[in-house]
């Protein structure tokens, strides 16, 4: 067993493949808008691929293709059979297959983003699929959500709280959200954004870029 087992065929070592970034969160929190923003901001400096997990259709993939943020062929849609969380956690086969298809076709890549279908607070990515994960909440879901916790909120490498421009309209207290998030997340970062006001999602993009560039693989400049 040992080394052979871990490095068997389709489970490549970390070196030599792209960083895999999971983006999860409830329906409507802005996952697809964030992925589009990341593609727009990082597409010039990183070699990208995107896998979407739409619940019903290829709507998210179509949105990204229409947005023109990435070559259409670099966006793959995976159906999840009514269970978006299964496809990112319990049975990641179809998503891994899509990620590897992108790497085979367009590789070497620096970053492959896997966007989960909208789900509930228990959704979290398997470490077998995502090396890093972002959980996206929005303020209109209520400022109590970070306090409720759940694996997405507590364990994601980055928690993004989106639509802060709506906070006054929905009586959401950002300080409460920041404090509650810190209480369950310890030192792990939280970023407040409004992708509507900042279409480049600059702070999140900077975090993602740092993760991708520190990922032990062939550096971008060598391409």
């Amino acid at each position: 067993m040992g080394a052979n087992h871990d490095d068997h065929h389709h489970a490549p070592a970390h070196h030599g493949r792209a960083l895999r970034l999971g983006v999860g969160g409830p329906v409507g929190s802005g996952k697809t808008a964030l992925v589009a923003a990341l593609c727009r901001t990082l597409g010039g400096s990183l070699r990208l691929g995107v896998v979407t997990n739409d619940i019903y259709t290829t709507e998210d993939a179509d949105f990204l293709r229409r947005a023109g943020v990435l070559d259409q062929e670099r966006i793959l849609a995976v159906e999840t059979g009514c269970c978006p969380h299964t496809a990112i956690r319990d049975d990641i086969a179809a998503n891994l297959d899509a990620v590897e298809t992108l790497e085979d076709r367009f590789g070497p890549l620096d970053l492959v983003i896997v966007e989960s279908g909208g789900d509930n607070l228990t959704a979290t990515f398997s470490r077998g699929l995502a090396d890093r994960q972002i959980f996206v909440l929005d303020v209109s879901g209520g400022d109590k959500v970070p306090r409720k916790g759940g694996p997405g909120v507590t364990s994601a490498d980055l928690l993004v709280i989106n639509k802060i421009d709506l906070a006054p309209l929905v009586d959401a207290d950002l300080d409460v959200m920041a404090r509650d998030a810190a209480a369950v997340r310890g030192d792990r970062p939280v970023l407040f954004t409004s992708i509507r006001q900042d279409p480049s999602a600059s702070a999140v993009a900077a975090w993602v870029s740092e993760q991708a560039l520190s990922w032990p693989h062939e550096p971008v400049s060598a391409a």
Binding site: G81, C83, A87, D90, D91, I92, A93, A94
Partner: peptide
């Protein structure tokens, strides 16, 4: 629960 993608078919 075999993680081989069958759940989506």
């Amino acid at each position: 629960r075999l993680p081989a993608g069958g759940h989506a078919h």
